[in-house]
């Protein structure tokens, strides 16, 4: 009790002293917003944080997220800040190889230079874990890494994010969080046969999501999307994983909430909700009818 009081006092004093957030602290927040933890950690097998290994089953094969701890041999400890920036902005490894877009750089490319630098600053503070990467297990033709170059030519557009003119600061912030960091579209936007996102159906959901599961339509369409949800409903889902009927979300969205979105500030979650209410509603029924 006394101790809790002392801690609270220290926090208050720190607040009064105008404690400036360090770059790494900002990066820690962006790390949560970016959902890095849940793919790069094999939670199901008690894997070390960010040491890789989580399997992501897709229609194109199974991907195993790599080790992103600062281990020099098996992680990204030998990388420079420029290497990291190139990975996020261009989807290229330090040796110039194309990354598969299972690594959501088509979204992360939209991050601001400042945010990329802050995220890098944070990652360098983490403990290094020695854990070798597991190779992806892919179907042809996706096994041919050079094919990713063609994929990028067709579908990848490098960032950073540009706000839409006419959007309020709040909606722009929501757009940035949804499109760049939280990379919602990577699962919620349907893909064509080549795995390219169908931008005309942005966030309209798909029956062929990761791990063979369907992913709901989160556009504000009244019947098939979340048009009936209030801003409070969206915020509640993102910070607690509870749907408007207080049932919980499951699968990869539950992971995204638990390890990422639940850490975001109310202001940011409200910004996301306002943005999701502002995007075009798309009629695309994913759930089976009643």
């Amino acid at each position: 009790m006394l101790r809790a009081g002392a801690v609270a006092l220290v926090l208050i004093l720190a607040g009064h002293a105008g404690h400036a957030q360090t770059v790494a602290e900002r990066g820690a927040y962006l790390f949560r917003a970016g959902g890095c933890f849940s793919c790069h950690t094999d939670v199901a097998h008690d894997g070390a944080a960010l040491a890789g290994g989580r399997a992501l089953a897709t229609p194109f094969g199974t991907f195993y997220a790599p080790n992103i701890t600062p281990d020099r041999e098996t992680g990204i400890g030998a990388w420079s800040a420029a290497d990291f920036r190139r990975a996020l902005r261009e989807g290229l490894s330090p040796s110039g190889a194309h990354y598969y877009p299972a690594f959501p750089y088509p979204s992360y490319t939209l991050m601001s230079d400042e945010d990329v630098a802050a995220l890098w600053a944070y990652l360098t503070t983490l403990p290094a874990v020695r854990h070798a990467n597991r190779p992806h297990d892919l179907t042809l033709p996706f096994r041919v890494r050079a094919a990713v170059g063609l994929w990028k030519f067709l579908f990848f557009r490098a960032g950073p994010f540009q706000p839409e003119s006419g959007d309020s600061d709040e909606v722009s912030r929501g757009a940035y969080l949804v499109r760049a960091l939280a990379h919602c579209g990577e699962c919620h936007t349907p893909r064509n046969l080549l795995g390219g996102p169908d931008d005309d159906r942005f966030l309209a959901g798909t029956r062929d999501g990761p791990d063979g599961r369907s992913v709901p339509n989160i556009t504000p369409h009244a019947d098939t999307g979340i048009g009936g949800w209030s801003e409070g409903d969206i915020v509640q889902l993102l910070n607690s994983g509870l749907k408007p009927n207080f049932d919980n979300v499951q699968g990869s969205m539950a992971e995204s909430v638990r390890h990422g979105l639940a850490y975001l500030s109310d202001d940011d979650l409200i910004a996301i909700a306002r943005y999701l209410k502002a995007i075009p509603p798309i009629d695309n029924r994913i759930r089976r009818g009643p």
Partner: peptide, 9 residues
């Protein structure tokens, strides 16, 4: 909600 989720999980 927690009990719904605990069982559904």
């Amino acid at each position: 909600g927690k009990t719904c989720g605990a069982c559904h999980d």
